[in-house]
Simulated scan of single mutants.
Amino acid sequence: MRLRNKPWAQKLVLEHPEALLNEPDPEIKIPWQERFADFSKPLAIEIGSGKGQFIINWAKQHPEMNFIGVELQTTAAGMILRKKLADQIDNLQIMCADAANIALYLPPKSADIIFLNFSDPWPKTRHEKRRLTYKSFLDKYKQVLKDNGHIEFKTDNQGLFEYSLQSMNNYGMLFDFVSLDLHQCNSEIYKQNIETEYEHKFAERGNRIYCVHAHF
């Protein structure tokens, strides 16, 4: 969903290059070792972080890890940045960037988890290549993830969920966890679940939340 432009967000983004990479050049290597106090910690990446509720709470609850939130919209990235600065979250970096370049922004085999939360379903067939679980994106995730790394995907969109299962399966991925109704599941995964803004809204309406964890 496109957010209304907020001039303060653009200003904040430009004022804090130490915390947020704004449209980085994919041809220039990013010095992640300088952007985190300890880049050897396990790394989690959320692609499409929205307003940041999920990635902010994950980073707060897991100081033993590093986090990168990737968000295309400047306004949304500014909202995440404002929360990060207010709460002084040192283990979170933000990128206002296109996820299609993710394998150029990060070192190979550097990430432990990639989160895909309530991604745009792009329901029209002609837009299939834009879906974040399309095979070309899976190629990029495989480059970035460690050999024991995995993807965690959540959506309320049944069509996108079914497509994603098929896409991952066709790619040769293996499924560690699949739920057709995460919020009615008694598994440890649900007990540890952190909701996104969309997830909270959709669950309150009674929508099912679909979830899959998978690895290459």
Rank of each mutant, 00 (worst) to 15 (best):
D112M: 02
E27S: 13
G50H: 06
N193H: 13
L72G: 09
D25C: 06
E64N: 15
F216L: 12
K140N: 09
L21A: 04
I194S: 02
P107V: 05
N5Q: 11
I151A: 01
R205A: 12
E23N: 14
F175D: 03
R35N: 00
H127G: 00
F202C: 05
L132N: 04
D87S: 15
L138M: 07
E128D: 14
V13R: 01
G149T: 03
E199K: 02
H62E: 11
V70A: 14
N170R: 04
L3Y: 12
Q184M: 08
H215N: 09
K29E: 15
P31M: 08
F137W: 03
H62V: 09
D25M: 08
K191Q: 14
H62Y: 12
I113N: 06
K11H: 12
L182G: 00
E199C: 06
E27P: 03
T196L: 08
L20F: 04
A99T: 07
L3A: 13
K6I: 14
L104R: 15
V144E: 01
A44N: 09
Q88P: 00
E34V: 05
W32E: 01
I94K: 04
A37N: 07
Q143N: 13
K29A: 15
L174D: 12
N91V: 14
L72D: 05
R205S: 09
K11R: 13
P17C: 03
M173F: 12
V144S: 01
R205P: 02
G159F: 07
A100P: 05
K51G: 08
Q143S: 09
F202L: 06
V144C: 01
N169P: 00
W8A: 11
K11C: 03
Q53Y: 08
K146S: 07
S164W: 05
I89W: 04
E128R: 10
Q33S: 14
L116N: 04
D112T: 10
A19Y: 14
N101Q: 15
Q33C: 08
H16T: 02
R4C: 06
C211Y: 15
Q143G: 01
W122A: 00
L104Q: 15
E15F: 09
K83H: 14
P24C: 04
P17M: 06
I194T: 12
P24R: 05
S167G: 00
L116C: 11
K129L: 03
E204P: 00
F115W: 15
L21G: 01
E162A: 07
A86D: 14
Q184L: 11
N101R: 12
G78R: 07
Y190C: 05
F175Q: 03
S167R: 04
A76C: 11
F118S: 04
R205W: 09
R130T: 00
K29D: 08
H16K: 11
E152F: 12
D112I: 11
K124M: 05
L20S: 06
V212E: 01
Q93C: 10
E199Q: 03
